[in-house]
């Protein structure tokens, strides 16, 4: 089947919105089956949309980009797969799915690029903040929204216009060292966040707790919640110990002045 102008526009807009929604408003986060169903409805084939969407939804289990990590974009994959399955119109969804998964992998790289792009957005925002141009600052935040909308919308327009050969061409064009390199960088880049964080904290005073956290994680393999709770134990004890000492010192000082000090 061929796609008419209204269908083309609706799907491109939906694809842009989905990419945006995943990071921004989260009205339908990770609800890939819903998006594929909507694409199917637009193309007049809701049944194919549901089948592709259901399959992608189940494939995507556990592929959550939590804590700033990059995960394959199964939402984009599902929509591309649905479009291809509906266009070919043979009822065979396997080709669409195969291309869809390739798209998901491709989008891991785009996600890394997006977060690097955001470093630039941040520098713009911060520049306006320093210059006290607050309205410009508030507007600059939406550069990120714009980028994500285009990241969802433009590739979808290409897929609708040229279909499957485009995907193969893009994948063939990227050299292996580049894709592997981006994957390696994705594993390494969270370091910048931690290092930045450490510059804010009293590392020289409490560096021992960095070692504690590392040992609990690296040698004892505890999950982060358990480590946080252990950290809380030390923090609570430290707080009580220190505040008792302060109270005692205050009590001594008060006693010298001949005042009574009651316990709180």
């Amino acid at each position: 089947m061929s796609v008419n102008a209204i269908q083309f526009l609706l799907i491109v807009l939906l694809s842009g919105f989905r990419a945006l929604d995943q990071y921004s408003t989260q009205l339908f986060p990770f609800q890939h089956a819903l998006m594929c169903w909507l694409v199917g409805i637009i193309l007049g084939d809701p049944a194919t949309g549901l089948i592709v969407g259901g399959t992608i939804q189940l494939m995507s289990m556990g592929a959550l980009g939590l804590g700033g990590s990059s995960a394959p974009d199964y939402g984009m994959a599902g929509m591309v797969a649905t479009v291809l399955a509906c266009i070919t119109g043979t009822g065979d969804v396997s080709v669409g799915l195969a291309v869809g998964v390739a798209v998901a992998m491709l989008y891991v790289q785009l996600d890394v690029l997006f977060k690097v792009y955001n470093s630039w957005v941040f520098s713009v925002v911060r520049k306006h903040a320093v210059a006290r141009e607050y309205n410009k600052m508030l507007r600059s935040f939406f550069l990120s929204h714009l980028y994500l909308f285009l990241q969802g919308a433009l590739p979808m327009a290409l897929v609708l216009a040229f279909g499957q050969p485009v995907i193969d061409a893009i994948l063939g064009f990227m050299p292996a060292w580049f894709t592997t390199g981006l994957n390696v960088a994705a594993g390494m880049l969270p370091i910048t966040g931690f290092a930045m964080l450490l510059t804010f904290m009293p590392v020289n005073k409490f560096y021992a707790f960095l070692i504690l956290g590392y040992v609990l994680s690296a040698y004892l393999k505890l999950p982060v919640l358990a480590i946080a709770l252990l950290g809380a134990v030390v923090a609570v004890e430290y707080f009580q110990l220190k505040s008792n000492t302060t109270t005692a010192v205050a009590a001594n000082g008060a006693a010298q002045n001949g005042d009574e000090l009651e316990d709180e």
Binding site: F194, F206, I211, G213, V224, I227
Partner: peptide, 12 residues
């Protein structure tokens, strides 16, 4: 800070 550094240590 103690709590924070413990968690950062584990995240590294």
């Amino acid at each position: 800070s103690i709590l924070g550094l413990t968690v950062v240590g584990s995240l590294i």
